[in-house]
Design a protein around this nucleic acid. Structure first.
Length: 892
DNA sequence: AGATTCACG
DNA sequence: ACGTACGTGAATCTG
């Protein structure tokens, strides 16, 4: 869109969306979302953009329910119909769309959109700029001046009427600044502004033409007569107050300037994607965007703006590659298989300006690859890529150190929407309306059909990926900036990726002998229990088959059915525990299950993962882009769920030992990090006090909830309080708590009520966060990590309730994740700075595991908790407990 | 491939 | 009235 001369456009978002909602017949897109108000707003927006060609734009919104106007007059806007849910649903949709237009938006609690517009227009006027205000509300006419024009929507939203001061005069016979006097006299039923009864527009205008202002009218009451005089006499205060209410406040403390809202047009691709999602096809055509949208079916052919050069000992091209390396900035590493510690490299692509160099992976061994290896390992050579964490591991397995990772589109995309199910480059491109690349599956095949295609085809695919990274990078960087996550990305997640790769490559030593010994023991007991079970059942069957087990328990033995699932009887542990009193076999089955799990998942599973080539170590792979809350996850194998709760399983931890003689395992875990985070973000005084006094939090909760002194808290009370605390963190419901404590829903409800009456700040937080999620459509952590909750406004009770609990839980769990991630990055720095040999090996959500040489025991015992506790300053102290052991079992 | 079960925080 | 606790990964059975 052509850039206009210097002109600021200020749009009254609330007013226009309301108008549009009532003016446009209900439209619904295929996913059931009503979009009429967004559609109406957009058509209006396109029209005014085209006609006015502004250089700066801001859309202002009302924020929250109460404003400073309510302080003087609580009934302000009272008696209004509640905003229909079909409309309030559309607010977040509209706000997203405005973002896709790259247009600024602003709202500030306590002020209305009018006030924001009034203030920014004043600032612009003072700078001598031209201003256009767009609204459906004629109150805004008071802003008209020789610099400020007001566009009012007329029937519907697409037609607008232009008001310069002389137009205001022509229409009302008044000067713009008299509009507030007009309101003062005639009032405004829609805002519940009283005015003077019996005075409508005509009388008000007549009075103002004679006396000029409300104040002057009031001074001249003696000169009036009859009913009019009586009405005004009786409503002097009303008139004054009404005028005040109608006056736009032009001194709002904005943290934006006119320059901040500069607009240089929209990005066609982003807008196309957004409009396609909304199914606004006519608008896409009107803007000629169909071609800009990669997801539109008829795929826009990517204009190939780069040259693909195959490099290799047979193909040549080394000199050209070496000459281009100073300009190289994009790297793709392709490997076969999901586990990067056990994947063969296929190839790599390096992009420099308009040249993309592609090599088969083995070419890295060529003596001509020296310059390339230097580039890969050069921390000063910045590299963008896709899943560089994985790339670092694959390269490391080939003996090559990767440095200089500065931007990873997969990681960035995860921060922008951690719940997006499709993390592939192909999916990412589609969502951003960029030219697509072939899916890996279509190039390589899947499962048994996996094959590496001929060189030409492979090269084209890798080059297309490198090109895609290059296109995505600026788009994602902008989005991170806009959503205030740049710092989170560059200072936390990106450095963490490198720290994780280091931990994974280091690995943790695991003694196969210890596992095998345990396994023999488990095996003997499993066999014993199996024969007992067969005896009890009177027949042999597959105990591991829930179907066969169900038949034995419920059909043959006639035990009561507690719960059913899709496929038949449920036989999970919860059900079996309830069945224990009925038959001896139940206890045996529970024990069998427990041992079978240990044997298959932990003994056999871990044995398979021990690598001889790295000295009997296990190398997990932490995934940084999976968990919706910001937590890490661990795969191949999962080292975040090694047994601990039951003693039999806990023995497994004895196999995890230091990799050097004389070293020890150090475990450090945060104490109650989630409840401490809750104390901080809710600001609840009692909860904060509990942590400031370093009390046992569950005992303290029991004291407060049951209203008894410490001595009278028995084990059962503490257990209940503990369950309530868990429930609070998970987003509590009476049903969930009742299940956990095996009590009635009513009793659980009473517990919760009692808790909230004591911890009122927590109740307030829970209410506020859900409300905020409904308003914004997302929640955030302390570091600004964001999670969208599309179901928060669902009419389906289950979906909505789930989203509400998620809204309560995610800021807590996510902030705890932020904190330990920060601690890990700092810990890595601290180890380097001090030249320590100790190594950080594992992270288990609130725990870090290290291996430490003897001479560093004392240092680490102090350093680790110090770094963990100071990772982020909260209103309550963070606490980390440390312990040493000769294996992971003992470090408790 | 999807469901079930269970290990962890 | 509605019926779930929040977040993961792995093994196994089944259709």
């Amino acid at each position: 869109m052509a850039k206009g001369t210097d002109k600021l456009m200020l749009i009254d978002g609330n007013s226009i969306i309301y108008r549009a909602f009532f003016a446009i017949p209900p439209l619904t897109n295929s996913s059931g979302l009503q979009t009429n108000a967004v559609y109406g707003f957009t058509t209006m927006l396109l029209k005014v953009l085209e006609e006015e060609k502004p250089s700066h734009i801001l859309v202002a919104f009302d924020a929250g329910k109460t404003t400073f106007r309510h302080e003087g007059y609580a009934e302000y806007k009272g008696g209004r119909e509640k905003t229909p849910p079909e409309l309030s649903q559309q607010f977040p949709v509209l706000k997203d769309l405005i973002r896709s237009f790259s247009i600024s938006q602003y709202e500030l609690p306590g002020y209305e959109a009018d006030d924001i517009i009034g203030t920014l227009s004043r600032l612009a006027e003072e700078e001598g700029r031209e201003v256009v205000v767009v609204s459906g509300d004629k109150d805004l006419l008071q802003l008209a001046s020789d610099k400020v024009t007001v566009l009012l929507t007329r029937k519907g939203v697409t037609e607008v009427e232009k008001y310069a001061p002389e137009d205001v005069n022509a229409r009302y016979g008044l000067k713009p600044e008299q509009i507030i006097d007009l309101k003062g006299l005639m009032g405004d039923p829609s805002d519940n502004i009283p005015g003077v009864p019996g005075v409508g527009e005509k009388t008000a205008v007549k009075l103002l033409q004679e006396f000029g202002s409300v104040e002057n009218v009031l001074d001249n009451i003696p000169n009036l007569k009859g009913k009019l005089r009586e009405n005004i006499e009786n409503n002097v205060d009303n008139a004054r107050m009404s005028k005040q209410l109608a006056t736009i406040f032009r001194e709002v403390p904005l943290d934006r300037t006119v320059d901040d809202v500069a607009w240089s047009g929209y990005d066609a691709a982003s807008l196309a994607t957004a409009l396609r999602k909304l199914e606004f096809k006519s608008l896409m055509e009107r803007l000629d965007l169909s071609g800009a949208d990669a997801g539109s079916g008829e795929l826009a052919k990517a204009e190939i703006e780069y040259e693909t050069i195959i490099v290799g000992d047979d193909a040549g091209g080394w000199e050209q590659l070496d000459a281009s390396l100073p300009d190289a900035d994009t790297l793709i590493i392709e490997a076969a298989g999901d586990n990067p510690h056990a994947s063969e490299g296929i190839g790599l692509a390096v992009m420099a300006d308009s040249r993309c160099f592609v090599l088969a992976f083995p070419q890295l061994k060529s003596e001509k690859a020296e310059a390339l290896l230097t580039w890969l390992s050069d921390p000063e050579a910045a590299k963008a890529g896709y899943d560089l964490h994985r790339a670092e591991l694959v390269l490391a397995r080939a003996g090559i150190k990767l440095c200089g990772q500065t931007f990873d589109v997969q990681l960035a995309a995860y921060l922008l929407d951690p719940t997006e199910a499709d993390p592939s480059l192909t999916g990412l491109l589609q969502r951003h309306g960029l030219p697509s690349v072939a899916s890996d599956e279509s190039v390589y095949g899947k499962g048994a059909k996996f094959r590496v295609p001929p060189t030409e085809e492979l090269a084209a695919h890798l080059a297309a990926k490198a090109d895609a990274v290059r296109r995505l990078k600026p788009v994602l960087e902008d989005e991170l900036e806009r959503l205030n996550m740049s710092k989170l990305y560059h200072e936390l997640e990106q450095p963490l990726a490198v720290v994780l790769a280091g931990m994974e490559l280091q690995g943790i030593k695991c003694e196969s002998g210890t596992l095998q010994e345990l396994g023999k023991d488990f095996q003997a007991r499993i066999e014993g229990i199996m024969s007992d079970i067969y005896q009890q059942a009177g027949t042999e069957f597959n105990i591991g088959s829930p179907k066969q087990l169900g038949e034995i328990l419920f059909d043959k033995l006639g035990l009561p059915v507690i719960k059913k699932n899709k496929t038949g009887y449920s036989t999970d542990a919860e059900v079996l525990e309830k069945l224990e009193p009925y038959h001896e076999i139940v206890r045996l089955i529970l024990h069998y299950r427990q041992l079978a799990k240990l044997q298959s998942t932990y003994i056999e599973g871990l044995l398979k993962e021990i690598r001889q080539d790295t000295g009997g170590k296990i190398h997990t792979f932490y995934r940084q882009t999976i968990a919706a809350t910001g937590r890490l996850s661990s795969q191949y194998p999962n080292l975040q769920n090694i047994p601990i709760r039951l003693e039999e399983g806990r023995q497994i931890r004895k196999a995890f030992v230091p990799s050097e003689p004389g070293w020890r395992i150090l475990g450090a875990d945060y104490s109650q990090i989630e409840l401490r985070v809750l104390a901080h973000i809710s600001g609840d005084d009692r909860l904060k006090e509990a942590f400031l006094q370093e009390m046992d939090i569950h005992t303290k909760t029991a004291m407060d909830v049951f209203g008894v002194p410490k001595e009278q808290v028995d084990a059962n009370m503490r257990r209940s309080a503990k369950a309530v605390n868990f429930g609070i963190v998970y987003g509590i419901s009476d049903y969930g708590l009742s299940q956990n404590l095996n009590i009635t829903r009513k009793e659980a409800g009473a517990f919760i009520e009692q808790y909230f009456s004591v911890f009122q700040g927590v109740r307030k937080y829970m209410d506020t966060i859900v409300e905020q999620a409904k308003q914004d459509g997302y929640v955030t952590t302390l570091l600004g990590r964001r999670r969208y909750l599309p179901d928060i406004r669902a009419s389906n009770f289950n979906l909505r309730s789930f989203a509400e609990r998620t809204a309560m839980n995610t800021p807590i769990q996510g902030t705890a994740a932020d904190i330990i991630k920060l601690a890990m990055v700092r810990m890595d720095e601290a180890l380097r700075e001090r030249n320590l040999q100790s190594r950080m090996l594992l992270q288990v959500h609130d725990e870090l595991v290290f291996e430490v040489p003897e001479e560093e025991f004392e240092t680490m015992k102090v350093l680790v908790p110090q770094v963990m506790e100071s990772a982020l300053e909260l209103d309550v102290p963070l606490k980390a407990d440390v312990s040493f052991g000769s294996n992971w079992y003992e470090a408790k």
